[in-house]
Write a protein that binds this DNA or RNA. Structure first.
Ligand code: SF4
Ligand code: SF4
Lengths: 134, 134
DNA sequence: GTTTAATTCTACCTTTTAGTAGTATTTAAC
DNA sequence: GTTAAATACTACTAAAAGGTAGAATTAAAC
């Protein structure tokens, strides 16, 4: 029931960049305790997905490519396949409609809605500042 | 954000056994579309954890070792390491107390409580019957 | 223009999760 | 007692997630 590491790292990276304005991969790696090479893999992905933009060369780094209030957690999670179409549910019955549902459906409905709304409504701006530690 | 396959299978297995009374690994494998060898690995684990008891030899199979109303989803998930001590949270800050918390803590608190309560309060008996399909 | 500090690309390695194979053991039915 | 249908044990393989290595590219600083 946890997010995968890549998603967790991505959230913390975006949060840190948001608070810092601009910063390098080296700084991110050190401050967030994320292995440098793995971090750059994720930041490169974040650049391609237009969450951040990169400034190459000396004195370079990353900064947000849009306002932090316009980046929702849900958008990040979807990008890293955390909430894709058929994988959003507990027991993962293939096509769930009125007729076919898994045994947990009724119990899962409310908490699921709540957590999805939370992910939709929470943006990078909303996150607690300076709470980027491990 | 999904449960792992083993946990999902375990819930469906227990639900099916509960509705059927007693049944063999072969039947479980066929009806639940779970690979036979993988299924027996899980049932053996369920026997050791005292969720079910096995009847060996010809005409054998499995049945619940306690009332279905006494088996909570939470207990199953905990057994398969889905909700162990430090792994229950989103961003996974090491030791979260009043001082140290991850950026998502405030937003996550309510949905987390809700889903945990749901897992605590839902038993095998509560699950929708005959909703054991893939 | 050279240096240096930065990002990017390609490819590989490691760990965990998921699944498979084969054999041994148990026990009711005959 | 032999057979057949069942579970249990040991060990392996495959796929996905997590992480590493090294070289190539970029651009500000000097
Ligand atoms: S039946 Fe409901 S809870 Fe189960 S996988 Fe489908 S949508 Fe999710
Ligand atoms: S700070 Fe809160 S939300 Fe974050 S990992 Fe700890 S308990 Fe979970």
């Amino acid at each position: 029931m946890q997010l995968n590491n890549t998603s967790k790292y991505a959230i913390r990276i975006l949060s840190y960049i948001s608070n810092k304005g601009q910063c390098s991969a080296k700084e991110l790696s050190e401050k967030l305790s994320i292995p440098y090479k793995f971090l750059t893999k994720i930041t490169t992905e974040l650049v391609k997905a237009d969450f951040i933009l990169s400034i190459r060369g000396r004195e370079g780094g990353y900064k947000l490519s849009r306002e932090s209030c316009n980046i929702t957690i849900m958008e990040i999670l979807k990008h890293f396949n955390e909430f894709n179409h058929q994988k959003e549910c507990l027991l993962g019955i293939g096509m769930c409609d009125g007729k076919n549902k898994c045994g947990m459906h009724d119990q899962w409905a409310k908490p699921k809605k709540m957590i999805q709304d939370m992910f939709e409504n929470t943006t990078i701006e909303n996150l607690e500042k300076n709470s980027y530690k491990i």
